[in-house]
Design a protein around this nucleic acid. Structure first.
Length: 337
DNA sequence: GGCTTGGGCTCAAATGTACA
DNA sequence: TGTACATTTGAGCCCAAGCC
């Protein structure tokens, strides 16, 4: 888990408060900062050498930790490019505003993870923490980051595992992320590791997201409360081209875009479904005005509920007469179908 | 062999319902 | 109103069969 890594960093380096200002890919090793000033007294030379050795050792240690991602550094957000594979279907503006407010009040408590850009010196690529990066950008601050040398595979696995650890990607976002990783040529093993799913689940996720038109997914958004089953139902219903057309009209509606993502999903689902409304219990009103029986019905059963508070004996009375009632029913000719 | 698909089982969390 | 229980929902895991 990527977040675990951060805690590991804290454990291995209990005082990472030393926030550095690194030059990315420091080939010239400026952290050494060796300023050799000649001095004549032997004692002074000795002290200087000790100081130099100490600083050099310390600088090497910092560089080592930096390359291993063991030090939190501050970076200019403008030098950080987005992740190589986008994993989200948009961000809830309210949540993002809350994060901006939180960082404004408390500072950025959790660093993001980046790697040195593989082709552009002085730039970085984001592994995870894009919401924090976006918030810090909005506030015009430097972003606290952990810099690590990561392969493409390590980058997407870190990205996926960070999302898994927080469980903040919805099911459809995970499907979309899986598809994008596959389109970029990552192996199934890497995608499985990134998402923390087995091959069967991954296969289903990719198959599902391919069945739902991208414009509909993007119009609905992340739908955080909607899982595999309901997206699968939606995909089934969207097999009908005519229904797709109806959805197309719906998602262009201004009222639709004002809904939450879950509500948008439900609106589309409701439009497509052969609505089987939940049975609303009805009451039978006796001539004396009381309601001793409530009736609920669906396509499988009809249920009569006798309210003992209204009439304690009526239910037992009907129960005793079931045989007679059934016989009478048979005689009417309305036999079971 | 790698991948897909379907089905069954299990578990956890959320939600609904009945009851004291 | 709080609690216990039942139901629903979402998801993971495993297995088997079929496809390419």
């Amino acid at each position: 888990m990527a977040r675990k890594h951060l805690f590991e960093i804290a454990n291995t380096d209990p005082a990472p408060a030393e926030v550095q200002q690194p030059q990315p890919r420091q080939l010239e090793r400026p952290l050494l900062g060796l300023n050799l000033t000649p001095s004549t007294p032997v004692g002074a030379i000795s002290q200087s050498l000790e100081a130099i050795n100490s600083r050099a050792t310390r600088a090497e240690e910092i560089e080592r930790k930096l390359s291993q991602g063991h030090v939190v550094v501050e970076l200019d957000p403008a030098t950080i490019d987005s992740a190589i594979v986008v994993d989200r279907l948009g961000v809830d503006p309210a949540q993002q505003d809350a994060l901006v407010q939180q960082i404004r009040e408390n500072g950025q408590l959790v660093p993001i993870l980046v790697r040195p850009h593989p082709t552009e010196a002085g730039r970085y690529q984001l592994a995870y923490g894009h919401r924090r990066l976006s918030a810090v950008r909005k506030l015009g601050l430097q972003v606290k980051a952990v810099v690590r040398e990561l392969s493409d595979e390590e980058l997407v696995v870190s990205q996926g595992q960070e999302n898994n650890s927080r469980q903040d990607l919805s099911y459809i976002e995970r499907c979309y992320f899986a598809l994008r990783l596959e389109e970029r040529g990552f192996s199934r093993d890497v995608i499985m590791a990134a998402l923390g799913v087995d091959k069967a689940a991954l296969s289903r996720m990719i198959a599902l997201v391919k069945r739902v038109p991208a414009d509909i997914i993007e119009a609905i958004g992340s739908a955080p409360s909607i899982g595999r089953q309901r997206w699968a139902e939606l995909a089934d219903m969207l097999e009908d081209r005519a229904k797709r057309g109806r959805v197309g009209k719906l998602i262009c509606d201004s009222e639709f875009s004002s809904m939450s993502s879950d509500e948008r999903f439900n609106a589309v689902h409701k439009l497509l479904a052969t609505v089987k409304a939940r049975a609303v219990p009805a009451s039978w009103t006796a001539p004396d005005g009381t309601k001793p029986v409530s009736i609920s019905e669906n396509d499988r059963r009809l249920v009569l509920t006798f309210d003992k508070r209204v009439n304690p004996q009526f239910g037992a009375f009907i129960q005793q007469r079931l045989q007679a009632l059934y016989d009478e029913f048979r005689e009417t000719g309305l036999k079971e179908q």
